[in-house]
Every structure is written in C-alpha cells, then in structure tokens.
Computed example of a mutant assay.
Amino acid sequence: MRSVQEGDTVRVHFTCCADDGSEIATTGDGEPLELTIGEGKLIECFEKSVIGMMEGQKKTVRLQPHEAIGEKKSELVSEVPLYQVPEQDEDLEVGSRIQVKDDHGNDVKAIVTDISDQTVTLDANHPLAGETLTFDIKLVEFA
C-alpha cells in the first residue's frame, strides 16, 4: 500500500484542539482539506506528520508552541494612548480585534487585551502563539 511522501497531494480530515480541549478548527463532516506535502501552506510539523501515512490511517499529533505557531513575543504587546487607536469612537472592548499601523507604516492586526481611561494594551501576536496544539488527522485519499 502506498504511503505519503514529500510532494504528494493528499486529502485529509483533521480536528485541531487547544490544550484546554477547545476545538480551534476542523474539517468535520465537510470536504477534506487538500494539501501538497512540502508546499508550506500549513504548519510545517502538520505536513511532516502526514508523511508515511496510508489511506484510511488516523494519527494524533501534539505540537508544542515552537513547532506550531511559535511562542508569544513580548515585543508584539504594547500600550498605546487611547487617542491613537482608530476604533476609539466605536465600542472598543477587551477582546476586540483591530487593525493598526506598526512603526514602518504596515497594517498589523491586534487584539485589545486591556483598556484604561488613557491607554489601550494591544497584542499583535497570532491568537494561537504560545499554544500547544493537538491534531487528530485522518488520511482520506491521495489526490
């Protein structure tokens, strides 16, 4: 029976959960995800986990933060004056996702983690940075 190798295009079903067991993403009962191993469109360790699998095989893979999205970076958390936040006139609250400019004028997505009368704390880390992720993978077929 054929096993997955680098460069193969395959279809997989998967469920991704955080350490607390909450589901982050899944293909569920829908269409399987199609990917070409080595293209780099998904987390590298996820793709490498599929190598060697055969059609119908299931696997559970636990990825530490450095293998998944990466660790949280403290330099991506900043406190800024409230008046500099573009959405200040809207219902800004902890958990709001906003877009701001970095020091180089690039658009950056950030999450509001704290608000005071004068300042807003913004976290521009990926929402899954610092998370250990568990993937349940099933190789459905070769494409």
Score class of each variant (00 low, 15 high):
Val140Arg: 12
Thr121Glu: 14
Ser74Asp: 15
Glu34Ala: 12
Ala110Asp: 00
Met1Gly: 14
Asp136Met: 10
Val50His: 04
Glu71Asp: 14
Ser78Thr: 11
Thr134Tyr: 08
Leu139Arg: 09
Val50Ser: 10
Ile98His: 05
Asp123Arg: 00
Ala18Asp: 13
Glu131Trp: 06
Leu133Thr: 02
Pro81Trp: 01
Arg2Cys: 03
Gly38Leu: 07
Val61Gly: 06
Ala110His: 01
Asn106Ser: 08
Leu63Phe: 02
Val140Met: 11
Asp117Leu: 12
Gly70Leu: 09
Leu122Lys: 02
Glu75Gly: 08
Val94Ala: 07
Asp103Gln: 10
His126Arg: 07
Val140Phe: 05
Asn125Trp: 00
His66Asp: 13
Ile98Phe: 04
Ser74Ala: 15
Glu6Val: 08
Ser49Gln: 04
Gly52Val: 08
Asp91Trp: 01
Ala68Glu: 07
Leu42Ile: 05
Ser49Asp: 09
Leu63Cys: 05
Met54Gln: 15
Glu90Asp: 12
Ser96Arg: 03
Thr15Met: 12
Leu139Ile: 08
Glu79Met: 08
Ser116Gln: 06
Val108Ile: 12
Leu139Val: 10
Glu39Asn: 11
Phe142Ala: 09
Glu55Lys: 11
Gln5Lys: 14
Val50Arg: 07
Glu55His: 02
Glu39Ser: 14
Gly28Trp: 00
Asp117Phe: 01
His13Phe: 01
Asp91Met: 13
Ile51Gly: 04
Pro32Val: 03
Lys101Tyr: 02
Leu92Trp: 00
Val108Pro: 05
Asp117Trp: 02
Ser74Gln: 13
Thr26Phe: 04
Thr60Tyr: 01
Gly56Lys: 09
Gly105His: 03
Gly95Met: 09
Phe142Asp: 09
Leu122His: 00
Pro32Ser: 10
Gln118Gly: 07
Cys16Val: 13
Val140Ile: 15
Val85Arg: 05
Glu75Gln: 11
His104Leu: 12
Ser74Gly: 12
Gln57Ile: 05
Arg62Leu: 10
Gln99Ala: 10
Arg97Ala: 03
Val108Ser: 07
Leu63Met: 10
Gln84Asn: 15
Glu44Ala: 11
Ala25Trp: 02
Glu39Arg: 14
Ala18Leu: 11
Leu133Asp: 11
Ile115Pro: 10
Lys48Asn: 13
Thr36Ile: 07
Ile24Glu: 01
Glu44Asn: 11
Glu71Gly: 06
Glu71Asn: 15
Thr113Phe: 01
Ala110Ile: 00
His126Val: 03
His66Leu: 09
Gly56Leu: 10
Asp136Glu: 15
Met1Thr: 06
Arg62Gln: 12
Gly130Phe: 05
Glu131Cys: 11
Gly21Cys: 08
Glu67Phe: 02
Glu79Trp: 01
Met1Arg: 13
Lys101Arg: 13
Glu93Leu: 05
Leu82His: 14
